[in-house]
Amino acid sequence: MEAELRDKPSFTNLRLQLSPGDSVIAEADAMAYMSSTIRMNTKWNGGVIQSLLKRFLGGESMFVNQFSTDTGGELVITQPYPGDMTCLELKGNSMYLQPGAFVACEPGVKLGIGWAGLRMLIGGEGLFRLKVSGHGRVWFGAYGGIFEREISDEYIVDTGHLVAYEPSIGVKVGMAGGIFSSFFSGEGLVTRVKGPGRIYLQSRSFDGLAAWTNAHL
């Protein structure tokens, strides 16, 4: 299966060229267009309970679509908001994705829901996150641009900008500075991440967009 991320970085979409026998799993409603030779199969995103959990807690769809073909064809997948997408190749390792980031994956990838803990709620990232593990490629998206950082020590990320992180990354939520500067700098709470491992960041945050829009209403 050939994959190409096009129209980077603002309106990135994923074009997949499926060979006979290939299949791919995508978030519901992510398909933009495809060849008529491709079959779409809707299935629960995990078991029924898992699906419900993913839908209501993980910000993911209750159903995922599996696209497969016997003769080959083209498939284009997008995400609902403007921004970049990236590909991650799993080789037995795993990665946590923030709610809503997942776009598509190969069949060898396992999707699971995990409790992220209260600190992530305080950090504005959501109580649950998606865990992708196994073998195969995973595509996920962000609002704005995506950058990747290999972290060996500590790194500070503003809340709402963390898109994905490895399980080996330690995450702490803390104040940006002292009490005064935390409140008046506009930074408020920040996430302190600690390596070793890799994190993916988005250049814009939904909270920022919401606050900006609100100010202009």
Binding site: E89, L90, K91, G92, N93, S133, E166, S168, P196
Partner: peptide, 13 residues
């Protein structure tokens, strides 16, 4: 898992 520079992505399960 393992982190090592020689691995294609620097990591593997």
């Amino acid at each position: 898992g393992v982190f090592h520079a020689d691995l294609s992505d620097g990591r593997a399960g």
